[in-house]
Design a binder for these strands. Structure first.
Lengths: 359, 359
DNA sequence: CTGAAAGCGCTTACAG
DNA sequence: CTGAAAGCGCTTACAG
């Protein structure tokens, strides 16, 4: 509206009542620093941002004031103003599971190396399905610059509405959505690798625990792959299907029976936890591994696994975490949408001692 | 300034150029919702906050608009405006360590149960000591409503300048600062408990690995306590002091020698990881536990520990995590400063099989 | 090289 | 019960 005279300001910085009490701790704001350094807020900001250049003189005064006042910039104000934050969100399945703990740790590291801040949340789905996605919404609320999803609780469809606003990379989980980048484990290869080892050991009748996809997509993939590859080599497979969410001991009893009847000489599990539960149960009923039955797991993350001797496969968490962050970072820096890719990494077989020749 | 006429506004909501392109995803703001619902921003805010009451009619319109537009409130703006955030910061030592992973998990849970948001950071101290405290500063920058500190990297003095601005509770670490609340493990009792078991098993000459306080205050406490209590019962103690940061295998060799010489019939370690390293090394040189030497650890967190059989003590992570969050929450709600307390919890002995009578 | 001002998206007295 | 306005603490064109 040209022609309309601007209203005169009553004082400097509007009519904000300037409190003369010196602020301290987290209460000191940029304005306090500016005053102490005898410059404007804009200048303080420039010094802190590092650009555009400020005269060395003023720079020093500002730094001095920052130091003396112990100024810590308010990241919320920064984010709001810049319309973006350095926050990267990680949606984790369960930090109690060492495989996820490891992932978290590595992601944490990779993210800080990129000068970003990681925030972690764990979506539950126990509680009233009402806000099953509360964790997701909270992260989006914070306007994270990127999102790393590693839990099956969050479905691809839940993310769809936001795919244009925030880059999403799913890590360590089976991802097939055409618009979500994925960096995960090659569960087919994992299953095949383990199956081939069991087959090579001479087993002709094997029990395989296969959780339903509803329980865990990854475990389902692994288990199915094991079964398929065993069958491909003409081996008799006893598929023990488990649809019991949160009950890793499901199906163990049945496998124990098969072992005792001699109907199976080996038992394959889709993760170490289940394998350990079986080992425990077997020991309890006097069955020896691999004496009476061979046992294999999958994950290979738990410290001390070598002392247990479990034959397993170590998933490549390091590579997945690192690559996941790398991809996300690329997306966060990218102007336009990049081509969506689904990358998979395979881990390495861990011999152990619970896989032996046919008893 | 009474008498000074207010400058007339040129349009609604200042002269903000109203973009007519419908925003989507995370781009939709409260104003868009307001327009869609035919109300003011203030009203939308009230509906969302839940207070003060808004007519049921309008409420519904607003909720409808929120739903249809997929509105996710910007938490940074909320925080800035409310001068506080729901964020709780957790400074973690190393998520790779199952004991910390467990703590993280439990804190995560407790925090969400309180309707708060957890953000986690891991301060390194490998890198140039320059921004050793970068993680702390980033959290303070986000103006977290409270801080949970569980790593020794952050010293009490580093926190001092902010103690007035943000409630701090240290969890699971030895804390003695008079102004910082502490909820931790009773390492003295832990050491005593284990020492008494070893003594009761009849050992008269025991090797104890004691890391220096610089390496780990907690482990130092445990180890010292073990040694002291053994000595109190007239037992000969071989203190193996380790000052090697990040090298948990330090001192193991020496203990192996003592075992072989028969100079020690039991070896006590300040955590399970070190005990497992010893177990591995012992096995490698043909020493059996407890046949040739008894072994105890401390932590009891690793899954599958029972399969290894390590005699240890399970630290009460659950109680510490829960109580830590509880205390923090109390502080966050409190108007004035509460009395500072240092609470300690002791765990439970885990018999295992690596502690036996004197060989 | 530096400052005054507008704007980021909310909340919350202040007035009806 | 509802709206207009100020303010939270920054950043960043816009003008010198």
């Amino acid at each position: 509206m040209p022609g309309l005279p601007k209203a005169p300001m009553t004082g400097q910085s509007r009519s904000r009542p300037v409190p003369e009490v010196p602020r301290e701790g987290l209460k000191v704001r940029m304005e306090d620093v500016a005053r102490a350094a005898n410059v404007s807020r804009a200048t303080v900001s420039r010094v802190l941002v590092g650009y555009p250049p400020v005269s060395p003189q003023t720079r020093e005064q500002v730094f001095k004031a920052v130091r003396e006042l112990g100024y810590v910039p308010n990241a919320m104000a920064q984010g709001l103003s810049k319309r973006k934050s350095d926050l990267v969100g990680l949606l984790l399945r369960d930090p109690r599971n060492p495989a996820y703990g490891q992932l978290h740790s590595l992601v944490q590291e990779a993210v800080s190396n990129h000068g970003l801040e990681l925030i972690t949340a764990v979506p539950h789905w126990q509680e009233g399905a009402e806000d099953e996605l509360a964790a997701l919404r909270r992260m989006l609320g914070l306007r994270v610059g990127g999102l790393l999803v590693s839990t099956g609780v969050i479905k691809a469809v839940d993310l769809e509405p936001f795919l244009d606003s925030v880059p999403v990379v799913s890590v360590g989980r089976v991802e097939e959505h055409p618009r979500i980048h994925g960096v995960s484990y090659d569960e087919d290869v994992h299953g095949a690798t383990l199956a081939n080892r069991v087959a090579s050991a001479g087993h002709r009748s094997v029990a395989v625990l296969v959780p339903s996809a509803r329980v865990s997509t990854a475990e389902n993939r692994r288990g199915s792959s094991m079964a398929v590859h065993l069958e491909g080599r003409g081996i008799t497979v006893h598929r023990i299907v488990s649809d019991a969410f949160g009950r890793p001991e499901a199906g163990i009893g049945r496998i124990l029976e098969l072992a005792r009847e001699g109907a199976a000489t080996a038992a394959m599990f889709p993760n170490d936890n289940r394998a350990m539960i079986f080992l425990r149960a077997a020991k309890a009923v006097g069955l020896d591994a691999p004496g009476d039955i061979s046992v294999t797991g999958c994950d290979g993350i738990i410290p001390g696994l070598d002392l247990i001797g479990l034959t397993t496969l170590r998933i490549p968490v390091e590579r997945v975490a690192q690559r996941g962050v790398e991809v996300l970072e690329g997306l966060m820096g990218a102007r336009a949408g990049t081509e969506v890719r689904h990358e998979k990494f395979a881990g390495e077989f861990v011999p152990g001692t619970t896989l032996g020749p046919v008893a």
